[in-house]
Amino acid sequence: MANNSKIIVDLDTLISHIKDGCRLAIPTDFNGMYSGAAVSATRALIRRGVRDLHIIGVPTGGLQADMLIGAGCVKRMEAGSMFLGEFGVPPAYARALKAGKIEMRDSTCPAIHAGLQAGEKGIPFIPLRGILGSDVVSYRNDWKVIDNPFGENDPILLVAAITPDVMLMHAPMADRHGNIWIGRRRELAVAAHASAVTLVTVEKIVDTDFMADEQAVTGVLSNLYVTAVSHQPKGAWPLSFGNDYDEDAEHLHLYVESARTEEGFKAYLDRYVFEREVVPA
């Protein structure tokens, strides 16, 4: 196979693929296996001052989305729900919505998964059962209800394919060629397949070739879909990363308390994102 070592880059080079105004897919913060949220890359994006993002939560949004929204990087948010685990609704998101600073495109989790599956197949839409009767259908003018052409008097929902410009995620490991081991979290692979560009931060880079290992390869996202990889140990902090580290509940608590007000959020960014000394007022 081709040597793809040029795929492994530093963090600023990795995020340089995320342009202002792009449609950016990010994984949910919370998963029993590990958080796929690339939080250190998110901090780098805020430092760079990216603007007008359309974020797609796969299928929900949490800390990453909240940080980007609070920092003024987001124009539109699309997700099945927005939550910060036991801390509830993300505070910067709630403030931005109230102030009319972002547009919220409410969805439902299976519609996002199905839309990405359509994107992966290169088809324009996909039908899915259920959902009819929910107000989400009446408010989504990009969705359609048709009569099942293979049935009779059988209304069914069609959702448009979701084809993000960029998928950004954090994964357990990459091999030297930039193949990514994601384990059983295949929804991350589906989102990557549907996206034009996939950027991955990883806990570790191992000097091997996953494609030559029949057991490892079943949990792999092939570098066919990967544009850039960056080595970011603790890249999901303060979220949990499975067996590697638990969520930093104390820090999340501090984040939620800080993000409730604009001043508090700015002070948080100064301290933890821009890494400036905070001068007490």
């Binding site: 299928p59 929900t60 729900s81 939550f83 609704v89 439902t108 989790c109 989400v136």
Partner: peptide, 9 residues
């Protein structure tokens, strides 16, 4: 928080 998967499930 929003709908999650409930409209479907």
């Amino acid at each position: 928080a929003g709908n999650y998967g409930t409209p479907y499930l």
